[in-house]
Design a protein around this nucleic acid. Structure first.
Lengths: 190, 190
DNA sequence: TTCGTACAATTTGGTGCCGAACGATATCGT
DNA sequence: ACGATATCGTTCGGCACCAAATTGTACGAA
């Protein structure tokens, strides 16, 4: 994890490198710390409670979504879990092979697949989630309940900003230019 | 990205599933939103400024660290960038192949490798970082400067909590038991 | 009926990324 | 000197993960 040589020092150095071009310091700090915190939290949870049950972060999130919302269509699960449909196909099949998840076709629409927890999956979540939540409490241990609410609210506003205006913003930035291909992944046919 | 069916509803459902076992709601919300925000921000930045320069998030972070701190030993870069040493080996070699990074042996300690930016790498950062920072400002657009500081401070406390007490906490949780192997990755020899 | 279009999940190609094992170098104790 | 030990960076095995291509199902229009 980050050595935290202090972000404000980094800002000064960045400013120097740019020869006076102004930097949005607060916004830079918030983004940097969002990412640091996410890595730290994920790593802590994986290495404490999740590994004990042989679950990756993503696998746990998927189980959690199905647990909470009940039997759901895969595209909804993928969106809620924040992963692509393709990734979910693999993860859900792994979980099915381990007997934690059931995959069933939709009764009337043959295109859909419904995911639900098996009894074993339910038991797992009843056992693991309290431990998970306990560690969530640990990582947030330096924040009061009120501070947690405040931070969570600020982050929610960031998520909403990207969800509501991100696409439009990206289009404006490109301004007609082709979207620039991704380096990795399957190459476009054309 | 997440459909945000509302976290408070999720809490109620989770509470119901646990039959009255109490949940640390605020802490749960803060962790969930840290992760949602991190994904949203990363995705937005990758799909706007980074793809235009054919950089992944990780590659950019690595370049940024070297740019800010100057020629550095790889283990420091890895820690600061929040990735493992093994990952850095691959990333830095890719960047070297693209002419953005130089890799040099340490003059007196033969085990070390020093990373620095080439002139081309410097130019790239002078060009890309302002765009990057502009998008950082965009994603934080719904927060005032003061709110940014407050959120960043809260997140910093989370990071510090994990850095300072995470290891000890994990050991206490295991309480003597073997650390439980990871599902993926190379198998232990024993 | 039979297209064509829309939309579902899956397959595929390729990088990201972690952590155990490994090989090379440095350092300390004797 | 010289082996034991620590500490680099690298290699390697394997899942995560995205986005394009593909395959399969549904459904309205001709």
């Amino acid at each position: 994890m980050p050595g935290q040589r202090s972000i404000t020092e980094a800002e000064k150095l960045a400013a120097a490198k740019l020869g006076g071009i102004p930097i949005r310091r607060e916004q830079m700090a918030v983004v940097a710390n969002i990412y640091r915190a996410a890595s730290a939290v994920r790593q802590h949870l994986e290495n404490s409670v999740l590994r004990g049950s042989d679950l990756t972060w993503t696998a746990f999130v998927v189980l959690w979504v199905i647990w909470i919302w009940g039997e759901s269509e895969t595209r909804h699960v993928a969106e809620e879990a924040g992963i692509s449909k393709g990734t979910l196909t693999g993860v859900s099949r792994t979980l099915e092979a381990r007997g934690l998840v059931r995959r069933a076709g939709h009764p009337t629409d043959g295109r859909l697949v419904l995911l639900s927890l098996t009894e074993e999956g339910e038991q797992l979540m009843r056992r693991v989630f309290p431990q998970f939540n306990e560690e969530e409490a640990f990582v947030a241990g330096q924040l009061s309940d009120e501070e947690c609410r405040s931070v969570a609210d600020g982050l929610r506003r960031v998520v909403l900003q990207v969800e509501e205006h991100g696409e439009e913003r990206r289009l404006a930035l490109l301004d007609g230019a082709e979207p620039a291909p991704r380096r990795s992944g399957r190459r476009p046919k054309a």
